[in-house]
């Protein structure tokens, strides 16, 4: 049976690279995002790259009414359903400090929206008894840092959610992979200047596929972020609160 991949946030740079990688294996892709014209162009690209099918559908993490039609579109393909979540938004902490209302949107985009979507999809996956969920979090979720803690908090919430989802779906043969990328050269990081251990979307996607094959639970990419974040998590709070990293 062919694979069907729901790609949430299909216009993001990493999602684009991921979509191509599964299109080339002949999967059916459901491209969910906000900009329909962009999704239609990506669907044509996926078809040219040997996708069995490519369906653009509207998705807004802040509008739950858009969720069910995506799940219906995936079921209609008749393939083994998988889901990869690439949504999230990262306004700068300075902007959030100036306009606290931005907290709601950041958390809806990066956590509550995708969590509610996956909660709706979970019974379908359980019944199917196979398939994978790839949830993209961030190393920013491992500790609240002065420069980025609202986004970090949303990603931390999402990571905890994925951990629980893994615990639940794992009993029914569905694998859940949490991906924690460091800085990736994407739309989101443009204009931020040089970032430590920057990687590319293609490299992240290659790591995701490797982790899926090995049924890993959590993937740090680049790998260096695992030891780095392990150290950062170990810094005692009295010291950490005075640091700006």
């Amino acid at each position: 049976m062919t694979d069907t991949w729901i790609i949430l946030g299909a216009s993001s740079t990493i999602a684009k690279a991921f979509t191509r990688s599964v299109a080339e294996t002949g999967a059916h892709v459901i491209l969910a995002g906000r900009r329909m014209d962009d999704l239609e162009a990506s669907a044509a690209d996926a078809s040219a790259r040997s996708a069995t099918g490519a369906t653009p559908v509207a998705f807004d993490a802040r509008d739950p009414a858009t969720f069910q039609p995506i799940i219906d579109a995936a079921i209609a393909t008749g393939g083994t359903i998988n889901c990869a979540v690439f949504v999230g938004s990262m306004p700068s902490q300075d902007d959030i400090n100036a306009d606290p209302a931005l907290v709601d949107g950041t958390i809806a985009d990066s956590f509550t929206g995708p969590a509610r979507f996956l909660q709706m999809l979970a019974p379908v996956l359980s019944e199917q008894g196979s398939g994978s969920v790839v949830g993209v979090g961030s190393v920013a979720g491992d500790r609240g840092r002065v420069g980025n803690y609202v986004y970090g908090a949303a990603k931390a919430g999402f990571a905890t959610y994925l951990s629980g989802l893994r615990n639940q779906l794992g009993r029914n043969g569905v694998h859940v992979l949490t991906v924690k990328p460091g800085p990736v050269d994407t739309v989101m990081t443009q204009g931020l200047g040089d970032q430590p251990f920057m990687t590319t979307a293609d490299a992240v996607v290659a790591d995701i596929h490797k982790a899926l094959r090995k049924k890993r639970n959590t993937l740090y990419t680049k790998w260096i972020w695992w030891p780095v974040m392990t150290v950062i998590k170990l810094i005692p709070e009295p010291i950490f609160k005075k640091m700006s990293i």
């Binding site: 740079t13 990506s42 044509a44 040219a48 739309v187």
Partner: peptide
């Protein structure tokens, strides 16, 4: 280079 899609084939 980010505009790198196949539009029609």
């Amino acid at each position: 280079t980010q505009l790198d899609r196949i539009i029609a084939f």
